[in-house]
Design a protein around this nucleic acid. Structure first.
Lengths: 344, 344
DNA sequence: AAACGCATGGCAAGCGGTTGCCAAAAGTTG
DNA sequence: CAACTTTTGGCAACCGCTTGCCATGCGTTT
C-alpha cells in the first residue's frame, strides 16, 4: 500500500509499476476511449494497488481549470444564506467540483478583494446579494466567470427569487386587511433588493390608494430592529414591511418591549422566511422563496456556461417564484384605534 | 496594463520586462532579503505595472502547500455551525489562507470521502462534530493534518467548549429548581457529544439524588422535536434536556400543541444557544459557548502546528468555557402537579 | 597584492499532470 | 501480398513558480 516510502504515489510510479508510459496512465484515467480496454484495466488495477490519487493541483496547472467555485455571501451569520450555501454546495459537488465559501461582511471592498485573491484559483464566482455597483459587477463579469444571486445586472447571469412579484403579494395582502398606509424599513443603501422593493412598494401603494413611506437604511440584522420599530412607530403606520426577517424579528421584539400589539396595533411583514420566522412571536408573515434552488441554479449557470453559453447581453436571468407565507404578525387593521401612540 | 495579449502575466513577463531572471522576480516577491533593495523595488514596480498576480496553483505545486483549509460540518443548515464557520473563516483569512466548507450531512462515509477527495488540495482539515469512530479519526489524524471541533480523540488536536462542566451546570440548575427527575433526549448514536453528555447527566443525577433517563436517539433537528417531546411526556418527567437547541425548539412546539405548559408542567433545556433560542416561546434555557472562538482556535491549531507542534500523544486539546443562559423554559417544579399526564 | 567572504542574481531542475504529434502495430481492403 | 486506415501507446513540451547550487563581482583582511 504505502510503497514508495511515504510520498504519495504519482503517475510515474504507476507507469513504472505497470510497465507503460505516463501518458498511458493519464489517459487510462481520463480518456478511456484513447486506450485499450485491457491496458486500461491493468493500469487501473496497479493504481488501485499503489493507492494512487490524482493531484488536483498538478492537473489544474496546465489547463487552468481548477474545478472549484467560490461563493460569497454578504453575511454568513444570516440564516437566509444557509439555503443558498447548501444549494450551491450540493450542485457544486454534484458537478464534481469544490465550493469555497467567503463572507464579505456587507462590504463591496471585501468582495472585490476576495475575488482578486481567488482569481486564478477558481473557475468562477457566485456572489449572493452583492453590494458592488452595477458598473463594477459588469466589469468583473467581463473579466471572470461570474453569476449573481439576488441581484440582476444586465449582461451578467443571475438567479433570483421573484421578490418584485412577491412584494406585490405583500402589498395586496396588507390592502386586503384594510391597511391604508405602509412603511418600508429599508436595508443597506447598496442593497439592490432594497431599491427594487421600494420601487414596487411605492408603485403598488399608488395603485392601491395607500400611503407608503421609506425609512432607513437599517442594518439587516436583529439588532437593527429596535431603531426600525421606533421609526415605524413614530410614523404612526399600521403596517410595516421589513427589509428581511432578521430586521422584522428585531422589530417584533422591540414592539413587544414597548407594549405595542402585533398585529393588533401594527402588522409586520418580512422577507426570506428564514429559520425562526415560524416560531418567533408572533410567527412572522414573510415572503418565502426557494433559495437553495437559487443557489443550485446559480452554480448551474456558472458551470454550465461553457464559454459558448450566453454571457454579455442576453445572459440568462433565472427568476424563481416566490410566495407569501401568512402567519400571525399581520392582521386586519383595528377598527377603533387610529394609530398606536404608545410610549415606553 | 494588459500587455501580453489577454493572458495573465507571469513572472517570465515580469522578468523580461524588468531585465532580470525569473528567479530574481520570484525572490523579490517572496524573499526580500535575498535580493538587493533597488532591484526588488524595480521588479515590484514592473510587476505592478503589468498587473501581475501570483498563480497560487503554480506556487503550490512544488511545495505542496496550498494555503487552503477545509472545514466539514455535520449539518450546514444547523445555525449552531454558523458561529464555527465564521470563526474558522476569519482565522483562515487572517492567516492569508482560504477556507473550503463542506457539509457532511451527518454521514461518516461522506466525511471520509470528502477528505479523500480534497486530500492533496488542502493543507489540513477541521471537522466539526465528526461522526466517525475514534479509530478512523486517529488514523486520519496520522495521515493528514487534522483538527477537531466538539470532539476529543486522543492524539488529535481539538477545540471544544466545556460541555461536561456545562452539563453539570444544567443539572444543578434543575436540581435547584426542585426537579427530582430528568430525561435526556439524545442526539445521533454516533455523536460523541451525546455520549459525553449522558455520562455527565447520569453521574450528576446520582450525586444530586435525581432520576435520569436517556431516550432516543432523535435527529438533532426541529423535526425531531415531536417524537422527543412525546417520549419525554410518556416518561412523566418534569425536566427535559435536549441534545441541542434545534431539538429543544421542536419539543417546545410540540408541547405547545399538546397543551403542556413550559415550564409549568415540564422544564426544557437545550445546548448551543443558537440563533432563535432567545425568541422562541418560551425563550430557551440553554448552554452557551463561544463557538466562533472554537472555530478560530481549531484553525490556529491546524495552521500553527508547523509540524513540530504537538501532534500524536500530547496533542493540544483546547477547552473553552461554557455558561448556562437561563431563560424562561425552565422553572421550579410545580408544587401540586405530580406529573403531566395530559394527552392530545 | 593575494586571498577570502559575502551579497547578489542566474541556471536549470523539478512539482505532477495533460496533450499534440508521431511511430509502431494491428486490422482492412483490393 | 501490398497499400492503406485505424488503434494504441510513447516522447517530450509545456503549465508557472520555487529553490539548490553556482558564478560573478565587490569589499575586506592580512
Amino acid at each position: 500500500m504505502t510503497r514508495g516510502g511515504g510520498k504519495r504515489p504519482t503517475i510515474y510510479d504507476v507507469a513504472r509499476e505497470a510497465g507503460v508510459a505516463t501518458s498511458t496512465v493519464s489517459r487510462a484515467l481520463a480518456r478511456p476511449e484513447r486506450v485499450n480496454a485491457a491496458t486500461r484495466e491493468h493500469v487501473l488495477r496497479v493504481a488501485e494497488r499503489l493507492g494512487y490519487h490524482t493531484n488536483q493541483l498538478a492537473r489544474a496547472l496546465p489547463s487552468g481549470r481548477t474545478r472549484t467555485v467560490a461563493l460569497f455571501v454578504a453575511d454568513i451569520t444570516n440564516p437566509h444564506f444557509f439555503g443558498i450555501i447548501r444549494g450551491a454546495e450540493q450542485q457544486t459537488r454534484a458537478a464534481g467540483c469544490t465550493l469555497i465559501v467567503g463572507d464579505t461582511e456587507e462590504s463591496p471592498e471585501l468582495e472585490a478583494r476576495n475575488i482578486e485573491r481567488l482569481s486564478g484559483s477558481v473557475d468562477g464566482f457566485v456572489i449572493a446579494a452583492s453590494r458592488m455597483s452595477d458598473a463594477d459587477i459588469r466589469k468583473l463579469g467581463a473579466e471572470h466567470r461570474l453569476t449573481l444571486i439576488s441581484r440582476q445586472v444586465d449582461g451578467v447571469p443571475s438567479a433570483i427569487v421573484d421578490h418584485a412579484d412577491g412584494t406585490g403579494q405583500i402589498m395586496e395582502h396588507l390592502a386586503s386587511l384594510g391597511h391604508r398606509s405602509v412603511v418600508y424599513l429599508a436595508g443597506p443603501r447598496r442593497s439592490w433588493l432594497a431599491t427594487q422593493r421600494w420601487k414596487v412598494i411605492s408603485h403598488s401603494a399608488r395603485e392601491l390608494g395607500m400611503a407608503a413611506t421609506r425609512l432607513g437604511p437599517f442594518p439587516p440584522a436583529v439588532r437593527g430592529g429596535a431603531a426600525a420599530a421606533d421609526a415605524a412607530l413614530a410614523r404612526g403606520t399600521t403596517a410595516a414591511i421589513a427589509h428581511n426577517d432578521l430586521l422584522a424579528i428585531g422589530m417584533l421584539r422591540r414592539f413587544a418591549d414597548r407594549g405595542v400589539g402585533v398585529p393588533g396595533d401594527v402588522s409586520v411583514v418580512g422577507y426570506d422566511d428564514i429559520f425562526g420566522a415560524d416560531f418567533c412571536s408572533p410567527p412572522l408573515t414573510t415572503l418565502a422563496g426557494h433559495f437553495a434552488e437559487a443557489g443550485r441554479r446559480a452554480v448551474d449557470l456558472l458551470l454550465g456556461a461553457r464559454g459558448e453559453a450566453p454571457r454579455g447581453r442576453g445572459a440568462a436571468q433565472v427568476v424563481l417564484p416566490s410566495h407569501l407565507v401568512v402567519r400571525e404578525s399581520t392582521g386586519p387593521v383595528r377598527a377603533g384605534a387610529k394609530r398606536p401612540e404608545k410610549n415606553l
